[in-house]
Design a protein around this nucleic acid. Structure first.
Lengths: 358, 358
DNA sequence: TTGAAAGCGCTAACAA
DNA sequence: TTGTTAGCGCTTTCAA
C-alpha cells in the first residue's frame, strides 16, 4: 500500500526553496518574507497540504489528539457527551479517540495506559462502575498528563471535573414523586462507588426529608454493574415488589437503569402496573413515546462534553503547570414538571446546590 | 507540561545494551538471544513500556489508527456500529478516531481529508445524506488508502462494502403491514441519494407487488436530511395524512425517521391514531416500551462494524494491493413477527436477496 | 530573509 | 548475536 501524502519537501521542491523556509512560512509569524509566505501558503492550500501528525507529534511531543474513556458509547448520555467533545475538539484541531471500559476496571486501565503512552495529549475520563484503584490516573496526572474527569468523577484526585447537578436532579425527581402522591418511594441506583450514585442519593434523601418521609434502607436497591445486565435490574425490581409495602414510586439514578426498570416493570403486569410512578435520570429523547410514563431528569450531556474538552485543551495548551482546578457543575432539568421549579426556594434546595467536591 | 513516557533508550541504558537490540527484542522473532529477549521484555513490562506511536507512525508510515466517518454518533445504529468497530480495532491494536458529518457533505469532506492526511491507516465510511461527489474518496482510494464503506455505500467506487440486507428488511416490514390488513401502505424514507433508501424502496415495492397492491408515488415521502430536523418529518407525515385515503400503515426507512414518525403521529391524536400501523428500521432497544407499537426491523449494527473493521485491517495489513473487493451483506431481523419468516420462500424473497452491488 | 543541519523515538540495513 | 548508523517528516537552532 503506497499511499503517501505530500510533505513539506514536496512543497519545497516545487517552489524551489528549502524545507525550513516552507516550515516557517507555514508556522512562524515572522522570519519569512511576505512574498514567500503567500507563495507557500497558496501552494500548500492548493495541494491540500497537512502536516504529518506523526512527525509533528514526534517533534512537539504533541499529537493533537485527546483520549476519551467512557463505560459505553451506545448510551444516550455518553453518545451525546461524545458529540459535545467532538464538536470542541474538531474546532480546535484535535482528534478524538474514544475507548470503552464496559464498566470493567481492567479494561479501563488498559485503555488509559494505552492512550497515555503518548498517543494523546490529554484524557477525558468517566470512571467505570468497578473502579476503586485510582493510582494509575493519579500518577499520570502527577506526571503532568492533562486529565479532565466528567460525570463519574473521583473524590481524591485534584483535577478539573465536569458534573451535572446531581443532587438537584435527584431532589426534583424525588419531589415530583412526592408531589404526585407517592408514599413509598424507592430508589434504584448504581454502585455507590460512583460519585453520581452518592450525589443522587443525597438528593433523594433530602427530598424524603423535606416531605417528612423516613429514609428506609430496604427501599434502596443498588445495581453494581449499572444495569449492564437486565437480570440485575429485574432482580432489584423484584426485591422491591416483594416488600411488605411495595413502592408506589421509584426514583431511578441513571439512563440504563431507567429504561431497564421500565422493562422490568413490564414483567409485573398486574393491576399494580398503573400505580407505580417512575422518575429518573435519562437522556433518551424517546421517553415521550413510552407507554408507561417516566418523568426524565435530563443532563446537559452535550454541554458537559463541550466543557470538559474546553478545560482539557486549555490544560494541554497552558504553558505553566496548572494547579488551580475547577469543578464545573451543569444544571439538570426535570422534563414536563413545571411545578417543580416554582417551589425551589421554599424547599431548601439552596443548601443542596453546594457541591460536595470543593 | 513535562509528561514524558519512557522510551527504548531508557530501557537500553538501564539494561546496558544498545537501543537496536531492545527494538529487536521487542519486535523481531529472531536475531536476539533468548536471554536478552527475556531480559528486555520483562523490563519493558515492568516499566509498562509502550512504543511511541508517533515515532512508530513516522517510521512505518502507519499509525495503528483508523478513521471513521458517520453522520452522527448519537444514533442507535451508529453507536452500536462504532461499538463493533471499536471491539475489533482494540483487539488488533488499532485506535479508532470517530468523526461526524452531521449529514453535511462539506463536513464529511473535511473529516475525510483531515483523517486521510496520514493521520490514519484506513477509513471506514458511511456516506452523508448530502453526498453526491465521490471524487475525493475515489482518488484517495486510488492512491492506495484503504477504505471500507458500510451502511450507506457508494455505487461507483470499487471497495469493500458492508451492508444490511436492506431489501429483505424492507420487504418483510412492508409484508408485515400487508398481513396485518393494511391497504394503503405509505413509505417514509430518506434521500434517494443514499443506497439504503434505494434498496429499502425496492423491498417495499416488491412487497406491494407480491400483495397485488399498486405502487403509488404520493404514498412515498422523502426526508432529504434523514430527519435531522423533526419539522421535516412532521411535514412529510402531514402530507400523508392529507391524502384522499390517508395511509393505514407506514413503512419507515431508518432509525431517526421511525421514532420521528411516532412523534409526528402524536400530533394527529384523533381516532386515526390507533389505526395506523408502523413498521420500520430502528436499532433502538426501547421500542418495546413504546405506547404506539412499532414493529422494528433490526440491523446487525455491531456485527456490521466488526466486519467492516476486519476487512479494513486486512486491507491495511495486506502486502500486495487488493483489487478483489467484497460486498458483505448481513441479515436483518423483523422483531416480534414470527409469521414473517415462515412464508419467505413462497413470496419470492429469494430473488430479492440477490444483491444489486455485485 | 533564507538554508543547512541536528534531532524528536523508533526501525532496519549494514558491520562487526 | 549485537552495535552502529541512517532516516521517517517535521521544527528549530545556528550560520550565512
Amino acid at each position: 500500500m503506497n499511499f503517501r501524502p505530500k510533505g513539506i519537501k514536496d512543497i519545497a521542491k516545487a517552489l524551489q526553496i528549502s524545507p525550513s523556509t516552507v516550515s516557517r512560512a507555514l508556522t512562524d509569524q515572522y522570519g519569512v518574507s511576505e512574498e514567500t509566505r503567500r507563495l507557500v501558503i497558496d501552494y500548500a492550500e492548493k495541494i491540500n497540504y497537512r502536516a504529518n501528525p506523526s512527525a509533528l507529534g514526534l517533534k512537539k511531543r504533541r499529537n493533537y489528539s485527546i483520549g476519551v474513556v467512557v463505560c459505553e458509547i451506545a448510551n444516550n448520555f455518553f453518545s451525546q457527551a461524545i458529540d459535545g467533545i467532538d464538536a470542541i475538539a474538531y474546532d480546535k484541531g484535535y482528534h478524538v479517540i474514544v475507548t470503552q471500559s464496559h464498566e470493567s476496571f481492567e479494561r479501563e486501565l488498559i485503555n488509559i495506559q494505552h492512550l497515555a503512552s503518548s498517543a494523546v495529549d490529554g484524557l477525558i475520563v468517566s470512571l467505570s462502575a468497578e473502579t476503586l484503584d485510582l493510582s494509575c490516573l493519579k500518577s499520570l496526572s502527577e506526571q503532568g498528563l492533562p486529565i479532565v474527569f466528567f460525570d463519574r468523577v473521583p473524590d481524591n484526585i485534584d483535577a478539573h471535573k465536569v458534573v451535572a447537578n446531581n443532587r438537584k436532579g435527584a431532589f426534583e425527581a424525588t419531589r415530583h414523586l412526592v408531589n404526585s402522591g407517592c408514599k413509598y418511594i424507592a430508589h434504584l441506583t448504581c454502585s455507590s462507588r460512583l460519585s453520581i450514585a452518592r450525589e443522587r442519593m443525597i438528593g433523594y434523601r433530602q427530598a424524603l426529608l423535606n416531605a417528612g418521609f423516613p429514609f428506609r434502607e430496604q427501599y434502596v436497591e443498588h445495581c453494581d454493574y449499572g444495569g449492564k445486565d437486565q437480570v440485575e435490574i429485574e432482580a432489584a425490581i423484584g426485591r422491591l415488589m416483594c416488600l411488605p409495602h411495595p413502592p408506589d414510586g421509584i426514583f431511578v439514578a441513571n439512563d440504563k437503569l431507567s429504561t431497564g426498570a421500565l422493562n422490568a416493570l413490564k414483567q409485573y403486569d398486574g393491576d399494580r402496573q398503573s400505580t407505580i410512578l417512575l422518575s429518573g435520570f435519562t437522556n433518551s429523547n424517546l421517553v415521550g413515546l413510552f407507554e408507561r410514563k417516566l418523568i426524565p431528569v435530563r443532563q446537559k450531556a452535550y454541554e458537559m462534553g463541550q466543557k470538559a474538552t474546553e478545560l482539557l485543551i486549555q490544560l494541554i495548551e497552558s504553558k505553566s503547570p496548572v494547579t488551580d482546578f475547577e469543578t464545573c457543575m451543569l444544571d439538570t432539568e426535570l422534563i414536563g414538571e413545571d411545578a417543580a421549579i416554582q417551589t425551589v426556594e421554599k424547599n431548601g434546595l439552596k443548601q443542596l446546590l453546594q457541591p460536595l467536591y470543593i
